[in-house]
């Protein structure tokens, strides 16, 4: 249990998706102008990451891995390695999962769809989702750990985007040099926030 807590906290603070791996930067920059929308996107990312990471784990272990096909078709498939299909499979799983969730939410909870719905299509092309799946494979996690990692990474993204949105809302009232307005100051802010997150590096939980 300790390991899992450790993994979650580590993926939130130390291996933060945005500040350490630069993943999900596009939506991080584009959707962080208002706190409410940032909040909606953040929650959607947590949700999708928590489910796509274990889904992709199952696909990798049961279909794509070298020798995984043996249990279905017999010994002659022991050397078959479908690793090269990894990217295609993962992105297909993510795209269809997002589409599926969108349909379910639209059917059962129109209010939630109203607040979350517009962000779901955006999420397919959010690098942090695909990145989460690829990192999870590289780190050789188990199924439970993969779920925890997905959840932790999602929370990390949520924290990052909400923090930036809150700062940018306050920033409206300040006098920023002309050339820095908008994207420039946002990047400098992100740099400072990343620096703040660096302080968590030595920590063990």
């Amino acid at each position: 249990m300790d390991d899992i807590t450790n993994l979650i906290l580590k993926s939130i603070f130390v291996d933060n998706m945005v500040y350490t791996y630069f993943l999900g930067m596009c939506s991080y920059l584009a959707v962080s102008k208002k706190l409410t929308t940032a909040n909606g996107l953040g929650i959607a990312v947590i949700f999708v990451l928590t489910f796509t990471a274990p889904l992709n784990w199952l696909i990798q272990e049961n279909i794509l891995k070298e020798g995984a096909l043996v249990k279905y078709f017999g010994e002659q498939y022991a050397t078959v390695n479908l690793d090269f299909l990894q990217l295609l499979m993962f992105i297909a799983v993510i795209a269809s999962f997002v589409q599926f969730v969108e349909m379910v939410i639209e059917k059962f909870s129109p209010t939630l769809y109203g607040s979350l719905g517009i962000f779901l299509p955006l999420i397919t092309v959010n690098c942090s989702i695909l990145g989460g799946s690829i990192f999870m494979i590289q780190k050789d996690l188990t199924l439970v750990e993969a779920t925890a990692f997905g959840f932790g990474s999602g929370v990390g993204f949520y924290l990052a985007i909400v923090a930036l949105a809150a700062i940018r809302e306050k920033l409206k009232y300040s006098n920023v040099p002309k050339g820095l307005r908008g994207l420039g100051i946002t990047f400098l802010l992100t740099g400072l926030l990343a620096l703040a997150f660096k302080t968590f590096i030595g920590m063990s939980f």
Partner: peptide
């Protein structure tokens, strides 16, 4: 990663 953010901010 901090350096990348700050440099790109300055380039902009």
């Amino acid at each position: 990663s901090v350096g990348a953010f700050i440099i790109i901010g300055l380039i902009i």
